[in-house]
Design a protein around this nucleic acid. Structure first.
Lengths: 191, 191, 191, 191
DNA sequence: AATGAATGAGTCTTCATTCAT
DNA sequence: CATGAATGAAGACTCATTCAT
């Protein structure tokens, strides 16, 4: 009998390699060949485990979204009973620390986002994530501001996070990650 | 006998067709063929006038940036002697009205931005634009807030504009253009 | 501890699965994967028992030819001492009933035949079968017609059988199986 | 301006090369590469002129069917006012001489036919041809035999032609082309 | 000036086969 | 005996670019 249970291992390997490739070359220049070379596997394996390149891309985005979510939950669980202002700060850290762990994650994310505008499957995933961020923010903002500006303040913070992340994707940009984080926290503080 | 002065006409035609194609199909799916079909010209013409597809893309981004700039200047000139708060509102309108004139302009812009992360020539153009937006904002913010928070408030507004634009690129997203504009103006007002 | 005597069982399983697959998808679209899925076995098994896909195909054709032969002999043995005209009718029935038992057997046969034109091993098998049919026909025709037209009448009948079978392979064709059989019998009767 | 009007020339070239390739290697082993190598053109050209390999195959079959038709009409026109028995002989000659002009045309034809069983577009073409042959035969047979056996005799002749052609596709088969022709004519004579 | 015919490198995908277990 | 993980060569197709006209 051959080695059993390789599927989850290979899938994880391929998703990692995809992230690596998109980071290095961009989604546009990421090919089955670049992914497989990084993974140290043969080109056929992608069709074998994911059915095709496109599905691998989608699985990778889904993995990214789940990671973001997981990281946030972990941070929140570490500090139970935290206040709402502090909770927002954790949320902000969670969003920007992701960038630090994975270099150029913002560029990767942006690649996927741009593609999503013309790819329903990806768009669906991005929307799920966008809504999750918004409701997470709103949940805490409710306790910090007047009811009539809850939505507007929530949108403001969500937009700031996305905007700063996007701006961070350009090397030599005017904002770095720590700045991004502190700009957002400044806003939270001013509420 | 060659027609004289065709160059600017053809170049404009091709840039328009490029914008149209990126809007319709995304940058990824925009090919020399799609551009030329829209322009009603033959594929050879791109190399002839721009040297290649890549340079046409860059010229298109440059055109977009100049348009944005031009539109802002026009708006400002129409209302000379405007106050700084009002000047920021004009700047916001200018940014979001661009979206209205060209449907899916945000998706187009996002396509170019994502590409820029892996393309130095485009990155340079994006940086120019990013810095111009920032200094434009800062110029007015200076007169509205304490000196020690000028930078942070400027970054906040710049990030909001970009973030809302990006979020607008996803169809069925949680924000529409008018909302985006009013969210930014709300922020300006709160300064 | 290996199970003994699996070889004939597995070989039969795989030949059956091959016939099934060629029927369903055509020889062109029959892959090791389709065969093994139908057989409920793993892809490695084909190389193990037959040495490769090609040899399995050949074994399958050989099985088909033997079946045809077997069926004819069975029919003849059931009615010993039958006259030559009746014997030809049995031969005709034998050929066309094969089609009835296995739907699309004609398409399967045709697939193999077409392949045979460019595959010596298959061609050899087809020739054996072609000659067997011809001599079977001739054996009886001898007793029914003048000596100088034995060959020509034999060829005529053989060609008719093949031609009708081939035409039957196209769905919505102009002849069905019962017609085919009666057309041949009409010819035998006219001798 | 480039050379204009290349389309019909290239299309004919590619159809010829396809016939050549199917003759040499069989339909199964005919690839874009084999066709283009024979045609002396590059692989991209097939998509350019036919949209894809499959459509080239279909165009080739259609060309074959039209050729068969054209050849028959030419033969008939050369001998206007010919009797019905003689007309059938011309039809037989037309069918079998095709084999002579194009070597191994029978194998080519058989390849296409086998494929047709699993390809609706090809099946449609084959049916058109099958019906045309049948009605051509019937048109003359009507004048040679009793009304109640017109159909059966027509089917017989049509099946004979196809069957002999198919048998001719196997090298070293038991029938050659002249024999095939004379076997059919013998049948016509016996009516 | 402009065409569009043609190229051919590059992409994704398929699939018969191998081999450690 | 049998598995199924993995391979990698070969397939069809795409597309930016070139060039004769």
């Amino acid at each position: 009998m051959p080695k059993l249970g390789m599927e989850p291992i290979r899938k994880a390997q391929l998703i990692d390699a995809t992230l690596e490739s998109v980071e290095r070359y961009g989604l546009q220049n990421t090919t089955v060949a670049t992914i497989c070379k990084i993974a140290g596997l043969s080109p056929g394996i992608i069709s074998h485990y994911f059915g095709g390149k496109q599905q691998l891309i989608e699985a990778t985005v889904w993995y990214l979204i789940k990671s973001l979510q997981t990281e946030l939950l972990k941070k929140l669980n570490e500090q139970p009973g935290v206040g709402h202002k502090e909770r927002l700060n954790l949320l902000i850290d969670s969003n920007f620390s992701q960038i630090q762990t994975t270099t150029k994650a913002s560029a990767t994310w942006l690649s996927f986002w741009a593609q999503a505008c013309h790819d329903p499957a990806l768009a669906r995933l991005q929307l799920i994530n966008e809504r999750r961020l918004f409701s997470n923010i709103k949940y805490s903002i409710k306790h910090l501001v007047e009811e009539d500006v809850v939505d507007i303040k929530s949108h403001t913070l969500a937009a700031m996070i996305d905007g700063l992340w996007m701006r961070g994707s350009l090397e030599y940009g005017t904002v770095d990650l720590e700045q991004a984080s502190s700009i957002c926290k400044h806003f939270v503080n001013s509420l």
